[in-house]
């Protein structure tokens, strides 16, 4: 009896030790993740401090900028915003009708719905560099030069599957009862989807758009061959355009330390933009959960 009690005790102790050990491993991994993120942010901020002046965001590159002389990267900031906002608009124009059609006009299991979702999944997997290659080939076919328009189209392609997926998930969350209530009042499918479903899903809609915008803002590989680069602020769809990721990339390759420091400062600016978008996304995400109909 006594020895049996003792062996149960021992087993119990072993199980508790295993539990404690596992918890320690979990904690260690989570702390490692937190440390990695803080190291990334701290490194960027710390390295960017020497070059982080107001002129960086207020001026375009002056003469001799790439040799370390005066100027800023206003061209890339404005360019990045132009490209990503335009791209998000294009992606939205395609994604929104697609997702509405998928969710209100097609049956969940219909062949067409399956094929559309499959192609969106395929598009989701395509790396942005391949979109860049595709955009470049498209550009040649349309006799376009590397320009704001070409960059916008290419980034829109990168954003399309991300946006569609996010939109699809939000719109699917709209309760069926709400739609049925609208139908019962005599609303047709178009009225129901635009005035009831979209309004209910509005916070999610904004969140999805912001996620896509953030992706567009940070994507460098797809604009490498399609957007070109310029030291001036782009004012036309057919001019080449500078983007922040490429500004960072090019300045980092410079042999001059002053220019490299500016790459760090540019990175801090880009990170800040992404951070703002991320915070806005969280804000609207919280709003979304508050209005949940149960």
């Amino acid at each position: 009896m006594g020895s049996r009690q003792k062996s149960t005790d021992r087993r119990l102790r072993r199980r508790h030790r295993a539990e404690a050990g596992f918890k320690l491993i979990l904690l260690a991994s989570i702390i490692l993740v937190a440390i990695i993120l803080s190291i990334i942010l701290v490194t960027i901020l710390w390295k960017s401090l020497p070059a982080l002046k107001l002129s960086m965001i207020l001026q375009t590159p002056g003469t001799g900028y790439y040799l370390g002389k005066k100027g800023g990267i206003l061209n890339a900031i404005v360019g990045s915003l132009e490209v990503s906002l335009g791209a998000t608009l294009i992606a939205l124009v395609i994604a929104l009708p697609t997702v509405i059609y998928l969710n209100t006009y097609l049956k969940r299991k219909s062949f067409l719905a399956e094929v559309i979702r499959l192609s969106l999944d395929v598009l989701w997997g395509i790396p942005s560099i391949v979109y860049g290659v595709f955009g470049f080939l498209l550009m040649l076919m349309l006799h376009l030069r590397a320009s704001l328009l070409a960059g916008m189209i290419t980034i829109a392609l990168v954003e399309l599957p991300i946006l569609s997926r996010a939109l699809d998930e939000t719109i699917r969350l709209v309760p069926a009862e709400l739609k049925e209530a609208s139908y019962a009042l005599g609303g047709n499918r178009w009225q129901t989807s635009t005035r009831v479903v979209l309004r209910q899903a509005l916070p999610g809609l904004i969140t999805s758009i912001l996620i896509a915008l953030g992706r567009g803002l940070g994507d460098g590989a797809s604009v490498l061959f399609t957007a070109g680069y310029t030291d001036r602020i782009t004012t036309s769809l057919f001019q080449p355009v500078a983007t922040l990721p490429l500004a960072i990339f090019f300045q980092l390759n410079s042999p001059f330390p002053e220019v490299q420091e500016r790459a760090f400062a540019s990175a801090a600016i880009l990170t800040l933009l992404i951070l703002i978008i991320s915070l806005l996304t969280r804000y609207f995400g919280r709003k979304l959960s508050r209005h949940k109909v149960r």
Binding site: L37, I211, A267, I274
Partner: peptide, 16 residues
Amino acid sequence: VIDLLAGLPSVIYGMW
């Protein structure tokens, strides 16, 4: 924190 990590652009990771 994880979401922010997911949102950081490729070029930032490269620089890091």
